[in-house]
Design a protein around this nucleic acid. Structure first.
Lengths: 165, 165
DNA sequence: AAATGTTATGTTATAATATAACGTTTATGC
DNA sequence: GCATAAACGTTATATTATAACATAACATTT
């Protein structure tokens, strides 16, 4: 079946973000338990920091915050945790920003399509087979076999557009 | 009218690349003349280096080559030229690789969709309205106004797939 | 619990990518 | 020619990411 799922929708600026954060952590724990891998304290902490809001977070900003608790933290501390989280589908990298966002849908490994608001910085993640199928169809025309895809769309979200009028 | 144009197709490994290079330079000159802007020697040289082949080229690799002719070249030399060339649609940045590819279609400013072979490194550029329209349609559903888009697809080109079987 | 293998983390250094800031030169229009 | 803007030179530094090797934590077998 073809799916089109808004994994991380745009939300009112004042939504209850604690809930996003907590459900992401629960989902991550569940996923890691099921997969028999370890969500260590460092990894969980990095995941929490990525989920501080719905904006892409920079590796060195994460590092700064880690250092507040543990001054010995270094770049590899962060990048290793981010690598782990990406491998498990708990975090995505936004390539065009060199920044990272949480993913609330670790179960199926996927690469979503991202919509990023220039104004508020919010990122919405879509997991859409129609887009994927169309890219497949295009690729097929010249015999290309797809293995990985990055779709990052920038513009203005409804809320920010509204506030400008 | 809706277009789907393969701006830079995949090509046999042994295609006559001199022709790609030369026609790109001619197109760039024509474009700059028409627009009343200057394709200075540095800019032209950087463009030639980007067009050395159909693989994305790194800024510092360009710099190394510039230095061979003029040892005073520095990072800003390269990045300024790349910025200019990107603004004019003569070069695209592949965000997921931090690398740059030439574009043979400067006339209409656009952001293409890129297909990148993991094996040979070749990049094909597609300029396809069907993809763009679909992304528009998806965005519209949640009131998102698109302003910039990045589509980078990785996998294996026909030639490389063939050679593996 | 000792020995061992594996995974995760600590630590230092450095590579790779990109921009800031300011001065100088060069093109171009008047 | 001269004023102006555009392009370039130069030095320094910011930002992003990885290499390399040591140590610690945990798991498994004995």
């Amino acid at each position: 079946m073809s799916k089109s799922k808004l994994i991380s929708p745009f939300k009112p600026a004042a939504h209850k973000h604690q809930e996003c954060l907590q459900s992401a952590i629960v989902a991550a724990k569940t996923h890691c338990d099921a997969a028999g891998i370890r969500l260590t304290p460092i990894r969980q902490r990095v995941l929490e920091l990525v989920w501080q809001n719905h904006e892409p977070v920079k590796a060195y900003d994460i590092l700064d915050k880690l250092k507040q608790a543990k001054s010995s933290s270094a770049p590899p501390t962060v990048y290793r945790a981010l690598d782990f989280l990406q491998d498990e589908g708990l975090v995505h990298k936004i390539e065009s920003l060199n920044a990272y966002v949480g993913c609330g849908n670790p179960k199926e490994l996927h690469k979503g399509q991202f919509f990023i608001c220039h104004d508020c910085g919010f990122v919405a993640e879509l997991d859409d087979d129609e887009i994927r199928d169309l890219l497949q169809k295009k690729a097929k025309r010249f015999g290309f076999e797809i293995n990985d895809e990055m779709v990052e769309i920038k513009g203005y979200c409804q809320e920010c557009r509204g506030s400008k009028k």
